[in-house]
């Protein structure tokens, strides 16, 4: 049997909102070490990985590894019925064809349960090696969201270049061009408002803004985002989910044909 309890439904609500447009369905792989997900968008140019560690849950039990095929739009519908402050418990019997979600209000005077039908989803797992990146940039997630949103009004793609001067986002379109540069900045007292640029070597890559915008749907999860860049490799846009784990978005760079 599988059972996982989170003290705040808001975390799961935000996670599913962050994923559901990019990947319509995927497998929650549950094991004694937690819940993980790997899913590609329909065009296979981006990949989402999610890791929620068992020790980040208030209670976590998984007797047997399981793959639970989930339609995220449907999961989102159910999670909309949970209050942000509700405690949420996910439950499934071994080999079950449904996932039970139980919501309890903070003072435990309202308890609801919803069963989500599970799907059979064939999915391939990709091996993602740990690697050193040419540039790793941590910045406020709201800043990232604003940059990619603002640039979308000017162009379809963005050239992201990291140098010792900072990280620069450039785009151009019919109406003109735009450049936004963020400098390494540890002045703000709050760490969440700082920008850290860890540069091993300068790197510049071009990406579709549409996807980078989509990743920004994860902004409500956490105040900081990390971008990892290496020449000719997918960018990694990572949002930590408190002590629970993280969601990572990988996007292939644009290449000249």
């Amino acid at each position: 049997m599988f059972e996982a309890r989170l003290p705040q439904a808001a975390v799961l609500k935000k996670l599913v909102e962050a994923l559901k447009e990019l990947v319509t369905e995927g497998n929650f792989d549950v094991s004694p070490s937690g819940i993980s997900l790997q899913a590609m968008d329909s065009s296979h140019v981006c990949l989402v990985t999610l890791q929620l560690n068992d020790d980040g849950f208030e209670h976590f039990r998984c007797d047997r590894n399981m793959s639970m095929g989930i339609h995220f739009g449907n999961l989102s519908k159910i999670l909309k019925c949970a209050g942000n402050e509700d405690t949420i418990t996910l439950k499934a019997e071994d080999n079950a064809d449904q996932l039970t979600l139980m919501f309890e209000s903070a003072n435990q005077d309202r308890i609801s349960d919803f069963d989500l039908k599970l799907m059979s989803i064939e999915s391939e797992h990709l091996g993602i090696p740990d690697q050193d990146y040419s540039a790793e940039v941590k910045m406020p997630s709201a800043e990232y969201q604003r940059i990619v949103r603002d640039l979308t009004s000017m162009g379809d793609t963005v050239l992201v270049s990291a140098t010792k001067e900072g990280i620069k986002f450039s785009t151009s379109g019919d109406i003109g061009t735009a450049n936004i540069t963020l400098r390494h900045n540890t002045t703000p007292e709050k760490e969440d408002e700082q920008t850290h640029i860890d540069l091993k070597e300068p790197v510049a890559l071009t990406f579709a803004l549409r996807y980078l915008n989509n990743f920004a749907k994860a902004t409500p999860l956490t105040p900081q985002v990390k971008l990892s860049l290496t020449k000719d490799l997918p960018v990694v846009v990572e949002y930590k989910v408190g002590e629970l784990g993280q969601v990572r978005f990988f996007l292939a760079p644009k290449i000249d044909d």
Binding site: H44, E124, A208, A252, D256
Partner: peptide
């Protein structure tokens, strides 16, 4: 025109 490779071009199937 610029294209994009599939994720499977970067990461190997397990």
């Amino acid at each position: 025109a610029a294209g994009q490779k599939s994720m499977t071009a970067f990461f190997q199937k397990k």
